[in-house]
Design a protein around this nucleic acid. Sequence first.
DNA 1: GATGAATGAGAGTTCATTCAT
DNA 2: GATGAATGAACTCTCATTCAT
Lengths: 198, 198, 198, 198
Amino acid sequence: MQKRALETKAAILKHAVDEFSEKGLHGGRVDAIAERAGVNKQRIYAYYENKDKLFEAVLHHCFLEIRQREAEGLNLQSITYKELTEALLDNYFKLHRDFPHLWRIIAWENLEGGNHAHVLTNIKAKFFKEVQAIFNEGKKASYFPEDVNFETYMFTVFSVTGFYFSNQKTLKHSLSAKLFTKKNQQNISQQILSLLGG
Amino acid sequence: MQKRALETKAAILKHAVDEFSEKGLHGGRVDAIAERAGVNKQRIYAYYENKDKLFEAVLHHCFLEIRQREAEGLNLQSITYKELTEALLDNYFKLHRDFPHLWRIIAWENLEGGNHAHVLTNIKAKFFKEVQAIFNEGKKASYFPEDVNFETYMFTVFSVTGFYFSNQKTLKHSLSAKLFTKKNQQNISQQILSLLGG
Amino acid sequence: MQKRALETKAAILKHAVDEFSEKGLHGGRVDAIAERAGVNKQRIYAYYENKDKLFEAVLHHCFLEIRQREAEGLNLQSITYKELTEALLDNYFKLHRDFPHLWRIIAWENLEGGNHAHVLTNIKAKFFKEVQAIFNEGKKASYFPEDVNFETYMFTVFSVTGFYFSNQKTLKHSLSAKLFTKKNQQNISQQILSLLGG
Amino acid sequence: MQKRALETKAAILKHAVDEFSEKGLHGGRVDAIAERAGVNKQRIYAYYENKDKLFEAVLHHCFLEIRQREAEGLNLQSITYKELTEALLDNYFKLHRDFPHLWRIIAWENLEGGNHAHVLTNIKAKFFKEVQAIFNEGKKASYFPEDVNFETYMFTVFSVTGFYFSNQKTLKHSLSAKLFTKKNQQNISQQILSLLGG
DNA sequence: GATGAATGAGAGTTCATTCAT
DNA sequence: GATGAATGAACTCTCATTCAT
């Protein structure tokens, strides 16, 4: 592929991320993506076959981005098991706060059938392995509850950090608007850390 | 309104819940709702003005349903603070497992802009007040961490129980498929209870 | 169906015949049909499902038209076997000359895959039966060659009368333009009758 | 033109014949031709100006091919007028059976407007002259009907042999499927010969 | 109250053709 | 001579909404 083509393809992907994260697979418009990217609509089909495959590429890309931001935001080499929960909570709260397109794409994928999720297999395997090594130390030292396995631990971290953003609109009206004030955004992480016995 | 009209209107709402929970506001089809409900499409406009307002009614209806199911599933009069977390976790895990349209509608609303969520204000106020009374007893008895307030507590419960279902498709491929096996579905509640110091 | 709908549906079919006979299934445009018929494009999909099914309806309609014109143009009750070939040749020459959309639709169907031809089954069964009765008399009287069966006989009639119109454009340039002059159009039928031993 | 260019041009024509004979001028795709030929699409425009001109070249090429196959299949030097009809029928039945792209291209051209047929002028003049010489002998010997001229005679031969293949799809359903069975394919030529008084 | 008929804007996708290297 | 990249118009089909009965 020529340089020009690579740029076009990249521009499409970039703006497809924006469009799909805002409106989902069904709500997102191929026309809109082309326009945002400043490319001819047909190029999308030339490089990504169809809308569905483009969404797949977007989803995949978002997970690569997550992986990269995790690497940047978490210095796993220097984190001990005692700091693990706090580090993870902080990391994902910031990640989702600063890059909302990530949890949005994931949420759309889950709602719209999960037919593209297969492209995610193994993307984060290495990362999880490293985190699990730290977690296991904590288990050995009885720092984490005996019966809690790694998957559940990570799941819980993902839940609270993701849900805080993904369900803000409804929680604000049904549970409490205070949860999402600037101030609370700052200490929600601490409170949950307390809850999780950190 | 005549009895016949009320029935028609109810049928529309019922099947709109199904359609919208499956496909969202954008993905859901007015035609499909009319067909599912066995009514003429025009009736939808007669009773609900437009698609948007119908979705609003659906969202509202779902929260009423949640409130009702909470009342059925939780006997707040007889629950002590020591049992609270377990009772809540159990309740919402079961609720979302058995009635997935509820978390789905909520997830759609959050993704699609949250423009209808205002109808949820105060719907659950009484319920939260009752739960908070129990929670406060636990705080007084130092059963719950000092710095954790009620909203964060409820938020955490909602997070883990909701996220378990709403993000299953992607977590299955990225984190672990084991989390969602029959067996794990049964003890995930227990593990999280441990994590939350239950 | 209401009267208005029936009219709309009929208008669509009528103009679809024109469009498809001119340009074929692939060359014909749904937009053009809608415009010709003066109806909203969507009505085509409401009444005929899709372009393919519409073409099927057109093909079917054309055979019904052929059947009707045969009935009008051939008085089978009064035709003896000695007049049969001449009557048939005359009939089909005139039919294809006056209503070229018929052989055109048939030619398109044959070229474009024949996937709709199944709708033609049995449409002309009764007509063929009646013609065959006359033909059989001729066979009995040794008027027609011993070894020529009815199907081949009809096929030959169809061939020469159809081919004269369907291949005019190329024959004109490759064989002879004289064949298609006004004068020749008049006696081609006679010449072929001579060839067929009429 | 360089040898390389000539090869490219030839490859384009060859595969254009395939594509256009299958799908017609409108249905055939320039992209598909380029791919089939294994050449860059732009080469098509370099050598043939546009799609229309390419089709013209294809049509012309097919008539050259017909002329060549006639020369191979018919030994006009040794055919007497008594054998002429049989020889012609046999030849064209076999020609169309074995090389269906020929009658297909011709049929497309006729349906799609006949705007390219002018390139056919005179291609077969010499061949027709030779056949006519034989035919004239037959006329002199009163073997052929007095009033049948050469053009009509050839036209009839072309009709039955061409129509047998070009209208198979519809005739199978409307007239009789038996006509096109293996067995009938073998003696249809004989039956028609009988009809034509051979 | 209820229904069938109709509409206009817009959705995804494809294609002949041209540009740039 | 040859190729990959790009384009704009067009095509089939759909949908929320309104009209007429």
